[in-house]
Nucleic acid binder design. Sequence first.
DNA 1: AAAGCTGTTGCGGGTTCCCGCAAATATTTT
DNA 2: AAAATATTTGCGGGAACCCGCAACAGCTTT
Lengths: 238, 238
Amino acid sequence: MKVLIVEDDQFHATYLQEALAEALPEVTEIFHAADGAAGEEEARQGEIEAIVMDLQMEHRNGIEAARTIWAERPQSRILFWSNYADDAYLRGIAQVVPEESAYGYVLKTASRDRLKLALRAVLVEAQIIVDREIHRLQKRGTAPRTRLDDSEFDVLIDLALGLQDKSIAERRGMSLRTVQNRLLSLYDKLGVSSDLDEHLTLNKRVRALNRALATRTINIETLEAAQRDLKTWLAGRR
Amino acid sequence: MKVLIVEDDQFHATYLQEALAEALPEVTEIFHAADGAAGEEEARQGEIEAIVMDLQMEHRNGIEAARTIWAERPQSRILFWSNYADDAYLRGIAQVVPEESAYGYVLKTASRDRLKLALRAVLVEAQIIVDREIHRLQKRGTAPRTRLDDSEFDVLIDLALGLQDKSIAERRGMSLRTVQNRLLSLYDKLGVSSDLDEHLTLNKRVRALNRALATRTINIETLEAAQRDLKTWLAGRR
DNA sequence: AAAGCTGTTGCGGGTTCCCGCAAATATTTT
DNA sequence: AAAATATTTGCGGGAACCCGCAACAGCTTT
């Protein structure tokens, strides 16, 4: 069995390599790539279907790499291994994972045993496994009261890019007023006007972005990816 | 000579420890703390004045820890050692470093030799040294045309928190119109309306925050710290 | 001292935003 | 199928925002 490690941090890569050797004796070859683009290439060349993938990397991050890998080989099993428990990453993964494939999400702070368990579960048994720590992120100060649904999330992305209501309506195919309704529920769920001094009125749009970042609903990589999407959309509508 | 390592990643900590032993034979004791709060405590207890500090950590990050350490012992020498070349971190450090003390900033991607050099320069020779890579961050897509000056940066922070013009004016002691002038130059320097389709008009405030994040002028930690400052300011004005 | 620069402030008006109200649709429950 | 509930949409208006124009003030340059 061949396994590919995509990880830009040298120390973490060797640690992973060791854990992998210990946990899965059936592994015969371990490949290594130091960024997302190289990872895609390795996976393609070596026809590798068991991958451990870091999320934050130069050039192309783990989620983007996973998307193209899965596009070529939907049955690939990918264990994501990350420093952060951002909801933004989970959402990103959920958007690219195909029906038929297995994946997992483990934090780098997880114990060696837990990592080994996840390695076996995902790469060998093709299970889906998500570190419980990740759901515990609700603790963050004022986390969103309720999870955003997809359409709210879309509007949040557009808001975060700086689009104005009219453009959002056009892009998402909603009426102006509906966009504004979404914004209202966004403001509510993100707790825009709840915390901080109540005598202080805030700029809701900016505050919404601020809160979305603070609660890890989106992160900077999300924004950069969204910006690229927006550009292609702009190009496509002429 | 005693040295304190404040670093939450186990692998990086041991790597540092090795490099430290190689580079500085005069080191007799190496202490270790896994987060900012523990770091402050160790430094206080052990009366340590040579410190290597990670930036991104739980509880208290490196900059906050450095602030209290420097407040107690201004002559402490601190080498910051970080994954990211964010301008936000440099600004943060510049704000807390006292006149009389030495510090340095090295990226984790730096070669072992460069790290060793920095260790010697800062911890022993009490020089100030900043990794050149960090200034090269101008490359990022559309980096700010010109560096923001302090008053623009202040306004940016307030904008990012969601304050409206009137509140910013009050907090910073400027007239409403002056705040708006600052915003104008902010929009200009951050390239708010330059990139992206020119037929698309954007929400400038949100876009400014977006660009400030994309160019690493501020980061999420900056926002969280700024929010705490705002809260104490709100409490203080009654 | 006069002539520039540069930064501050007030005024005014065109936009965008936020959101209550109410009618029209769509979805779910009974 | 009827009733109840939830969403979508238009209208309208007050507030905030963006910003050109112009009057000043504090500096530096000639």
